[in-house]
Nucleic acid binder design. Structure first.
Lengths: 334, 334
DNA sequence: CTGAAAGCGCTTACAG
DNA sequence: CTGAAAGCGCTTACAG
């Protein structure tokens, strides 16, 4: 392959072939109207000189950067990285690159500061693991940039979302705990104001209600707002014997904290998480968890975004309608 | 915050303030020479109209896109996602965004196809989890774009690398296995031609040599080149009682495969991995693993890249010199 | 300290 | 089917 010490531009290809930059551009972009001969000349010259298009320039002129912004808070949680891996590869296959934007764990929401840096990159689309809080909703809509909320309900914002039935997920988790004989349950969420977190809690409450039981408000916790140690101490003190956690990462931390306090997960206290991150990484099934069908979920997110990017109006059934979460039993429940 | 239905450009700010686009640009970029009064006018107008710079345009003109390309093969492995999370946040803090490029698991190497899409984005720097194979080395050097190989030795390529002493890591893993009484060891690598993979193997061999033992070539495997089932069957058949795996992801799969065959990890067969992905995600210590000091490692990678980007010639001691890997004992060794 | 002009490398819209 | 010109939104280099 050729040296690229000197930057090779369309102009160089034009000079080499004796054509205009215009024609060269047209050939490279496969626009109609050029002869086979011209095409071959251009292809040969590009190969020889090692031409590589400048996407900044083409994006500036054409208005399309072939870029998708991905908004996340925490790539350490495999739910995000696994999903991002699949989604970004699908985008790449379709000629889009991904730019990563993190809110640095400030909150589960998109804020203006973040949107500013996103907008500065002029992405063709935005796929967000974060919800658009408050006036960000209008800001985003006004921008006209396709925006997909992934893993969360888009409806409250009147936006496109790809999500699962989280109440159902919470319910099967609760039913499982009760079926295995756990009786005094707690819920450990992330943030008190995030819908997906509340939906899972609601599902648990429904399972309890069906068995004539209730979830005591003092046994509902939020780890992003309270200290982990305090939460676990309370759980131990009140003889909680079953815990549903908002996600697997939280569940693992709770599990460890309980075991430090002499409580064995599974035998003494049932623990259920969400996401099945073990399955993503082919790890042993230690934790009982609710799986949404991760690969399909990610693919669905990519499809919806690609649909919006291609401007097709095709209505497809939502992931929520076509897929049901399922329980994956590990060793943290009997 | 203001509507951005209509795209707001420097020209709009110039008109609003009665200044030239030039002056506005100078203020926004904090170039010397403007009055306090002008600054305030510009700031106010930008705020009112909701001005957001177009990085594509500024990058095209200035030659700096404030972008770092990250090259990876597999974000599912937490080693990559954890590191990427930390590194990308450090870049963001310094005004750089990250564009993700995957080679789609084709190989552990950067190839020309991948470099083409990278170059098209004109990144200011490239941080790569992949090694630059063959003539890619010269191609990259000729491009003049700062390139950091992360997690692998840069020396063979005459390039900047941030890595650990992998031979040492393999050695302490081997010593641990031997100290715990495992006697017939195997190594399960990834690719046969990746240095970091071979270094870990070499460390294991050194540990064995110190104990007057050797690693049989028929007990050295590469999962990217052989079938997992075949490997594990062979291990069982030959009564291997200690396995060092190239990384934790492989170790977990091996562990599961062994247990399916009735062999208990730890008691019957010691298993050691690399990366301590459990620690990254605060999961319980199931697997015994070698930890390089992941947070520091990632920070070091970011620092080296930022150093190159700022053009500072400051020599710093390499991570390899200042940090030593350590063993984290789990339940897969006695 | 500020402005008018040129130009980064493309693609678009138009002319032939 | 091909080309000359304009322009995307900035920053640079220069003039004043």
């Amino acid at each position: 392959m050729p040296d690229i010490k000197k930057k090779v531009t369309l102009k160089d290809i034009a000079e080499k072939t004796g054509l205009s930059v215009n024609t060269v551009s047209r050939v490279l972009n496969k626009k109609p109207y050029y002869t086979k001969e011209v095409e071959e000349k251009v292809t040969a010259a590009c190969k020889e000189l090692g031409y590589i298009v400048d996407m900044n320039a083409s994006g500036l002129r054409s208005g399309s950067t072939r870029t998708v912004a991905i908004l996340y808070d925490d790539l350490v949680n495999p739910f995000y990285s696994y999903t991002t891996d699949i989604i970004s590869k699908r985008f790449e296959e379709n000629g889009y690159n991904c730019i990563m934007f993190s809110n640095n764990d400030r909150s589960p929401y998109v804020d203006y500061e973040l949107m500013r840096s996103v907008m500065a990159r002029k992405p063709d689309g935005i796929l967000s693991f974060l919800e658009p809080a408050g006036d960000m909703t209008d800001f985003i809509k006004n921008s006209g940039i396709p925006f997909v909320i992934f893993g969360r309900d888009g409806a409250p914002y009147g936006m496109v979302g790809v999500d699962a039935d989280e109440v159902y997920g919470g319910k099967i988790a609760g039913e499982h705990l009760l079926a295995r004989g756990y009786r005094k349950l707690a819920y450990i969420g992330s943030w008190h104001d995030v819908k997906v977190c509340l939906d899972r809690q609601k599902g648990l409450e429904e399972a309890l209600a069906e068995n004539g039981m209730t979830l005591s408000p003092e046994h509902v916790f939020y780890v992003r707002e309270q200290d982990f140690g305090t939460i676990v101490d309370k759980i131990v003190k009140d003889d909680i014997d079953g815990v549903l956690c908002f996600n697997d990462v939280i569940a693992f931390i709770v599990m460890e904290a309980l075991e430090e306090r002499g409580i064995e997960a599974g035998a003494d206290c049932g623990i259920v998480g969400f996401d099945n991150i073990q399955g993503m990484m082919r790890m042993p099934r230690l934790l009982t968890t609710v799986d949404v069908g991760n690969r399909d979920f990610a693919e669905a997110g990519a499809e919806v975004m690609l649909g919006l990017l291609s401007g097709s109006e095709e209505e497809r059934p939502s992931f929520r309608e076509t897929h049901k979460s399922f329980l994956v039993k590990g060793k943290t429940t009997r």
